[in-house]
């Protein structure tokens, strides 16, 4: 399958297969007017298969979201058809307004103007906990 290479924009590569749509939604890419390609189950030498997202416009990507979903992702910034920057992705220490607390007893369920804040409590198991009630992110 061929997707045209992009001139100015970003390529989010090496996404664990099946997680592409989750990233598409978390980055709110459906609100972009530019061309966006989500390519699923692409053969990969490293992992067998992977997902890729190509965005054909300059776009400030939230690397915390990418790191939360999959810290092995690579991000390439493209200018004039060439890769000008490779962004490294790390497991974020803190997530602000990325995911919502699902604990029905949490204060964020009744006070919806509060920021949804999660902190990394176990880097090995990639466990995040709500700042307010300490419930594990699900």
């Amino acid at each position: 399958m061929n997707i045209d290479s992009i001139k100015n924009g970003i390529v989010i590569d090496h996404i664990t297969a099946k997680k592409g749509m989750m990233i598409y939604e978390l980055l709110n890419l459906d609100s972009l007017d530019a061309s966006v390609a989500l390519i699923k189950n692409v053969p990969s030498r490293k992992t067998g298969i992977k997902d890729i997202i190509k965005i054909d416009t300059e776009f400030e990507v939230n690397t915390d979201i990418l790191g939360y979903v999959d810290p092995d992702i690579t991000v390439n910034i493209i200018k004039d058809g060439k890769i000008v920057e490779k962004k490294s992705i790390e497991l974020p220490q803190r997530l602000v307004n990325v995911i919502k607390c699902k604990n029905p007893r949490c204060i964020t369920t009744t006070e919806q103007e509060l920021e949804q804040i999660f902190t990394l409590s176990d880097p090995e198991k990639r466990v995040y906990r709500c700042l307010y009630c300490e419930a594990e992110a699900k």
Partner: peptide, 10 residues
């Protein structure tokens, strides 16, 4: 004292 968890932190 609050029934919602995290309210005193807020």
């Amino acid at each position: 004292r609050h029934p919602k968890e995290g309210a005193p932190l807020v």
